[in-house]
């Protein structure tokens, strides 16, 4: 208990430090100069145009992406029309809208019809993307959880980057953690999927653009169908089913990580006893007296606990496996 209190204090102190650091930095950072409001030298009257790259050099990595492939007739690079004479600018207007006015008066805010990012409303951004990307994995986008919470495509995707981090298993989680912060912590628990090692991306289970699953935007129609992609050994149908397992794997497991292997929501035997309150030993109060290695009840508590005997907890196909022991 003392250690917990000490750790809590450490944590609180760190949080306080973080907050203090943030506030003090906030004050100093107000002095950072901004030239957005500076008077602009309009090119509107002269009709002069300027290649987009002169101001937006960093965004030209998009020419190295799939969007920048001119040989694909579907891409912005192939379909767009340049307003500046620079062929590389052709694609900009495809997503951002007509940039003529912006090019004439680049420092006047609000002249880019569609801007991407947190400060812009999601709907116009998404409409721009969905013009081409409404099928495939996005077919369930409308009404999906992310759409309902007003996430824009740019909340997760970086179309100007040479590689989009959210599309790569090793970097995808860092994008999802932006909002799903508790998942980052859960990844450091004792029992986990190999997400932390870069081998099991969030999208292995989740369809972030929406799906027909009851919850959690899963890749398949249900929790169990999603789990069976990798764990088909538990699909059955078994002669003797464990109803909790057949109903929903997450009745017992928490797939983002727990401290009880294998990703169990609680320790055995107590997890089992949340349902099994019948006769014999399944309703016994296993207290501290039960866990001495030499105790007569250790059979049901230590090691794998209930699973020492009832090892077929996901179902048994043995004709005498009714109690999931064989």
């Amino acid at each position: 208990m003392k250690k917990i209190i000490e750790t809590s204090r450490t944590l609180l102190a760190t949080l306080a430090m973080m907050l203090t650091m943030g506030l003090s930095i906030s004050a100093t950072a107000q002095t950072v100069a901004k030239d957005d409001a500076a008077p602009t030298r309009s090119r509107a009257e002269s009709g002069e145009t300027k290649p987009c790259i002169e101001c937006h050099e960093g965004f030209y990595a998009i020419t190295k992406t799939k969007h920048g492939v001119k040989g694909d007739s579907r891409t912005p690079a192939a379909t767009g029309k340049s307003i500046t004479g620079d062929p590389e600018d052709a694609m900009c207007g495809t997503c951002h809208g007509d940039l003529t006015e912006h090019n004439k008066r680049p420092r006047v805010p609000g002249l880019v019809p569609i801007t991407f990012g947190k400060k812009s409303p999601a709907a116009p951004q998404n409409e721009s993307c969905l013009t081409c990307h409404q099928a495939g994995a996005r077919i369930h986008w409308q009404g999906s959880k992310h759409e309902q919470t007003k996430q824009s495509c740019a909340s997760c995707h970086r179309v100007h980057a040479p590689k989009d981090p959210v599309l790569i298993a090793e970097t995808q989680a860092s994008v999802c953690f932006d909002c799903h912060k508790d998942r980052r912590a859960e990844m450091h628990r004792l029992s986990n999927h190999p997400t932390r090692a870069g081998f099991f991306a969030c999208s292995s289970c989740h369809a972030s653009h929406g799906s027909t699953a009851q919850r959690a935007s899963l890749q398949k129609n249900s929790v169990n169908e999603t789990c069976y992609q990798c764990h088909a050994q538990f699909r059955g149908p078994f002669l003797w089913e464990h109803r909790a397992a057949q109903d929903d794997c997450t009745n017992c497991h928490s797939p983002h990580g727990t401290n009880v292997a294998p990703m169990l929501k609680a320790r055995l035997p107590y997890l089992c006893e949340q349902c099994h309150q019948t006769t014999n030993h399944s309703n016994t109060a296993y207290s501290g007296a039960s866990i001495a290695p030499t105790s007569t009840t250790a059979l049901r508590v230590l090691g794998n606990s209930c699973v020492n005997c009832h090892s077929k907890v996901h179902g048994s196909n043995h004709p005498s496996g009714a109690r999931l022991q064989r």
Binding site: R158, A161, P165, F177, R184, G198
Partner: peptide, 12 residues
Amino acid sequence: TVKLFRDSDVMF
């Protein structure tokens, strides 16, 4: 291990 944070917008 995977990255814990994605780079902020200002430094993407």
